[in-house]
Design a binder for these strands. Structure first.
Lengths: 366, 366
DNA sequence: CCTGTCAATGACAACGTTACCATATTAAGA
DNA sequence: TCTTAATATGGTAACGTTGTCATTGACAGG
């Protein structure tokens, strides 16, 4: 164990961290033409080495089939020898295009967004794009700031976990003239492309499920704004249509953790008229409700049925297992990625709209 | 409710999504000089409008104090009027710098990484940087690919959730000549900067905590590689030093969900010699263990004490509440951000190393 | 009044790439 | 054989910005 002083004077004890010297040390000119490695090598250097014009190197890299096999081979060798990699800034400056696909998540901490981004990234990276994620934090201000910087950056496409609500921001994105993917809802007039599902229908489906299982006096717990509001709207409609009484709506502005869910359930239980079931349109809140129910010895589902929205692995595992309505967010990401690629490839009759089915995962909470 | 057909022929029912027409429509020339908005306006256009040279506009934007107040005002007005925003590619090409800070997460789905990235992003964005996150997915191959593209992209700095293990990738990052931040461990020889904590010490502390509470026959559950291996190493050392018997080590290669944790506990309980406590060096696994214990009517902590590692909100809330060793990942992100900014500002005597204290959050599981 | 110093500003060129057009080469059709 | 078209390649310029250096004027010290 080795130690040293950091600048604060406290003793630092280092961990031993595994180092891996890879068997295949990367790009080193075989023989004498060892390159300064870290330093800049331009397309001109490669061209000189391969004895072609720079433009040919450019072509060989982006449209290999437009260059004759022999030159292509020479160029490939020169690239390998020099360790050349294209300067994306110069390329983007001249061509007005880049190979970066920018994603914006309203919240990096959501398991479901993360899962969709992960699959979407996989699809796009396989197609040679660089997939980067920025954050907007459920705030219009941050969203606007992020989109401004985006405007300048000329990405190849944009992926959003959600839909843009602010009209000026919609306009800004539309003006970019690149593929834009919105998700997680089903707006009447998407900016460009959409892979989503109906949140109001999710609400109606929730009412339907509760009705079928005999519940007639229910409560709603969810976020006040955005998609939460849509689910509530659908839920209200469904309840009304089926003759279910919606005895209370417990709305929160912002979900920071399961404790918000706990609070919601306490508050619901404190009402004079107790519901026999609960639709919780947010999985973190649902989790909190489940826990609080246990704490108050409210048996689920005997005393209170709970229906959640989302895909929480953990909520499904906590006894008696939360029954949830949701979508396959990994699938959503994959579909979005595929659709973006099709649009980027430019074949005009691209599908621009995909509606995902809602899926129900059965637990024991209803 | 409105409907239409998508390209697959299924009926699409649109949600009503909230639209917000903002009261303050952005940048529109007051009066006649309305700009084509979406189209490119260059520094030259601004310069012409302000009746100065392009270079002066450039200066006014990056070093306002180097331009006289009157010209600065004219320029600002021209910028507002045209809606000009700097072309980051041209800027990066010429200057070799950019205002993008790139972060790489080995796993976007980790609550803790997300939390650190969130706070780090906040700090850097406040300082005017654009914070983007890429993914490496715990795979050396992806990591290498990501770092290659990074090499070309010349970000202002790089933030990593973890440390780089592959020597060739370490070399690559070192060669960039920009601030590099590693985290979440305490390697002997960081690439550049480090905000981390000792994983072996976490293991030793775990042994210590178990010892103090009277446990003498314990089991370990965790990931096989990376930091998990370090925690195990520390735990072994601690157990040996204190005379605790480590009756089994249950290692998993990859954690995909709580079910992995369930499996681990089953497997531990199936051993002939049952431990009286468990150190679970991963919070998802710990959660699974807690659930499985409940299912098998193993009372926690009476029959089996469980100590976790991490910061899981949910694990802390599940009765009896998981006791955990961990770090404040939001703090980690903030510290990393602050250190990066200091380094970017260029004042040489920058602190390059910060060791975070381990924190213990008490639940009822020990 | 002259010279040296400093601040403010501008002219010019260059960063590395690709769009555009021109040319050379080859294949195909009459 | 002669055009016509298609393919392969290169020359030139330009994308929008900023580094470098030169110029201007103001001001202080001699």
């Amino acid at each position: 164990m080795q130690s040293a002083q950091d600048e604060n004077g406290s003793t630092v004890v280092y961990d031993d961290v595994l180092r891996i010297a890879d068997a295949d040390p990367p790009k080193q000119g075989h023989g004498t033409e060892r390159q300064a490695a870290s330093q800049r090598v331009s397309i001109g250097d490669v061209a000189r080495l391969a004895d072609v014009a720079p433009i040919t190197v450019s072509r060989a890299l982006r449209n290999p089939q437009k260059v004759s096999p022999d030159k292509r081979a020479r160029i490939e060798q020169a690239v390998a020898q020099t360790g050349y990699s294209i300067n994306p800034h110069a390329s983007a400056l001249k061509s007005g295009r880049s190979n970066v696909v920018l994603a914006f998540a309203s919240n990096l901490m959501s398991e479901q967004f993360a899962s969709a981004l992960k699959t979407c990234a996989a699809v796009l990276e396989d197609a040679g794009y660089l997939f980067l994620v920025g954050q907007t934090s459920y705030s219009y201000e941050r969203e606007t700031a992020a989109l401004r910087s985006l405007h300048a950056m000329k990405p190849a496409a944009v992926m959003l976990t959600g839909v843009i609500e602010l009209e000026s921001n919609r306009e800004l994105l539309r003006g970019l003239g690149i593929p834009i993917m919105e998700t997680w809802a089903l707006p009447r007039d998407p900016i460009d492309m959409l892979v989503g599902f109906s949140n109001t229908e999710a609400g109606r489906l929730a009412a339907d499920m509760l009705f079928r299982r005999g519940y007639r006096k229910v409560a709603y717990v969810g976020r006040r704004g955005g998609r939460g509001a849509l689910r509530l709207q659908g839920f209200r409609e469904g309840c009304q249509a089926l003759g279910i009484r919606l005895v209370c709506e417990e709305l929160v502005d912002d979900v920071t953790g399961v404790s918000d869910g706990r609070r919601c359930l306490s508050s619901v239980l404190a009402r004079p008229e107790k519901p026999d079931a609960l639709f919780c349109s947010n999985d973190v809140l649902a989790l909190g409700c489940m826990m609080e129910a246990r704490r108050f010895n409210v048996r689920v589902p005997t005393d209170l049925g709970i229906l959640g929205f989302g895909q929480s692995d953990i909520a499904a595992e906590i006894p008696p297992g939360l029954t949830m309505i949701g979508v396959d967010s990994a699938l959503l990401g994959r579909e979005a990625g595929a659709m973006l690629i099709a649009s980027l490839a430019g074949t005009p009759p691209t599908q621009k709209l995909k509606r995902l089915d809602l899926i129900v995962s059965e637990g024991g909470s209803l």
